Amino acid sequence: MTPIAEALLLVQTQLWLGFVVFLRVGAAVVLLPGFGEQSVPARIKLVVVLAFTFIVAPAIPQTPPTFSTDGLAVLVATETLSGLLVGLGIRLFVLALQTAGAIAAQSTSLSQIMGGAAIEPLPAMGYVLTVGAVALALMAGLHVKAAQLLIHSYVLLPMGLFLSGSDVADWGLSQIAHAFELAFLLAAPFVLMSVLYNLALGVINKAMPQLMVAFVGAPLITLGGLFLLFLAAPVILSVWLSALDQFMISPFGVAR
């Protein structure tokens, strides 16, 4: 084989490898916090996917099968599904934080303030916590952790193999349950404050029936909710980031 033929074969092999990796990386980046948001232009997302592909492709521990029409269809299905699973697992942490913000806003009568500030309607607390969490995750090296997770995913999810439906269902249910558990854990201070507030209003109303406790208590719960958000936001974000890091280390392990 001539040197030119060897070079062409090498280029063809690398392009084929890059395309296969691009399928998984692209599906994952679409759901990745920060990079896959609806506010990010499609061209920027394409550049991010290409950048991740150039990082992941040389480091994967296996090579794709030889190009064929039947093999191409299988790889498109399996790699896209694997990328979506990885991205969905990370995206659930953002949804957990948004749910926590919704619970906190409902508990403190702040659910209607700035409800349309984001592309997806969110209460003010959920919007602030989500933006802060995404910024914190990017500052903590989300792009590096995501690249490591994508490389490691080829060990957990081998290339070209379909996943068992029962395994995917069990994993998805455990991740969703864990996301709701995390959401309630993050919103627990606001729920507790709401319970104490309503108990106090009930006692005051019982002692002084003539007093309009709702008019007196509404500004108090709003101010208390904002003050509690100021105090609890650093703890909430640190707990959230710790849970996200645990998922990055063991994405298909035990959710707890």
Score class of each variant (00 low, 15 high):
Thr108Met: 10
Leu199Glu: 01
Leu228Ala: 04
Val21Phe: 06
Met1Gly: 13
Leu32Lys: 00
Trp16Thr: 08
Phe252Gln: 00
Val94Asp: 04
Leu95Arg: 10
Ile236His: 10
His178Tyr: 06
Gln98Cys: 13
Val168Lys: 00
Thr99His: 05
Leu223His: 03
Met139Pro: 05
Ala118Trp: 00
Phe35Asp: 11
Ala124Gln: 12
Val21Asn: 07
Phe35Cys: 08
Leu157Lys: 06
Leu110Arg: 03
Gly253His: 04
Phe190Ala: 02
Asn205Val: 06
Gly115Arg: 11
Ser82Met: 06
Val191Lys: 02
Leu199Tyr: 12
Phe22Trp: 06
Ser194Pro: 06
Leu201Tyr: 03
Gln14Met: 14
Ala255Leu: 08
Tyr154Trp: 03
Ile236Thr: 13
Asp167Asn: 09
Ala7Ser: 13
Asp70Ser: 13
Met139Gln: 13
Phe227Ile: 14
Ala137Arg: 01
Ile236Trp: 06
Val48Thr: 14
Met248Ile: 04
Gln98Thr: 13
Pro65Cys: 07
Ser153Met: 05
Val195Lys: 07
Gly34Phe: 12
Ile60Gln: 00
Leu50His: 03
Ala137Trp: 07
Pro41Leu: 10
Phe252His: 09
Ala59Gln: 15
Thr130Ser: 09
Leu110Thr: 02
Leu150Tyr: 00
Leu244Tyr: 02
Met212Gln: 12
Phe93Ile: 07
Val21Ser: 01
Gln38Gly: 06
Phe230Ser: 15
Phe230Lys: 07
Val94Ser: 14
Leu136Arg: 14
Ala124Gly: 09
Thr53Tyr: 00
Leu84Asn: 01
Val25Cys: 08
His178Pro: 10
Leu244Cys: 15
Ala133Ile: 04
Asp70Glu: 15
Leu182Met: 11
Thr13Gln: 13
Thr69Ala: 15
Trp240Ala: 15
His152Cys: 13
Phe215Ile: 12
Val168Arg: 01
Gln38Trp: 00
Ala104Asn: 00
Met212Ser: 09
Phe190Lys: 00
Leu149Val: 09
Val131Pro: 03
Pro209Thr: 09
Gly132Cys: 02
Leu97Gln: 13
Val74His: 01
Phe52Leu: 06
Leu150Asp: 03
Gln106Thr: 12
Ala218Val: 15
Gly141Leu: 12
